[in-house]
């Protein structure tokens, strides 16, 4: 098992600074959805991680903790993620993406 980044939607949707999307060395790995967090009543969307592309470097954690000071990203073991986005389940829209969240262990 290995570590991947996991973004807390409740903290992220409240701030929505989008810094982690700009600092991840992996392209199209931290994605942004305007819909995520809307069901919980947040005004903005949230960033989320396509876990199959995450190499686990934790740069986003440093950026979120030290530059944005939001502490919304944590590294957790991939088999302990409750639900996660996989690249194949992400569709690109006009200004944001839509991800169907699935159990990463089931998808493989």
């Amino acid at each position: 098992m290995y570590l991947v980044a996991n973004i807390d939607v409740e903290i992220c949707a409240a701030k929505s600074c989008k810094l982690c999307t700009q600092y991840c060395p992996e392209a199209n790995t931290i994605l942004y959805s305007e819909e995520m967090g809307k069901d919980k009543g947040f005004k903005y969307g949230s960033a989320y991680v396509a876990v199959d592309r995450c190499k686990g470097c934790a740069q986003c954690v440093w950026v979120c903790d030290n530059m944005a000071k939001n502490n919304a990203i944590k590294m957790i073991m991939i088999d302990q993620l409750p639900l996660a986005a996989i690249t194949d389940n992400v569709t690109y829209g006009e200004k944001s993406t839509v991800a169907v969240l699935s159990d990463p262990m089931v998808v493989g």
């Binding site: 989008k18 700009q22 060395p25 994605l31 190499k55 740069q59 690109y92």
Partner: peptide, 26 residues
């Protein structure tokens, strides 16, 4: 500022985890 919401020209690559060069190239 729109990063993360469109499909990028460079998507997958074999560079080391956390490489700053990759971030710059991206």
């Amino acid at each position: 500022s729109q990063m993360g919401s469109f499909k990028e020209i460079l998507e997958e690559h074999p560079m080391c985890a956390g490489c700053a060069m990759t971030l710059f190239i991206r």
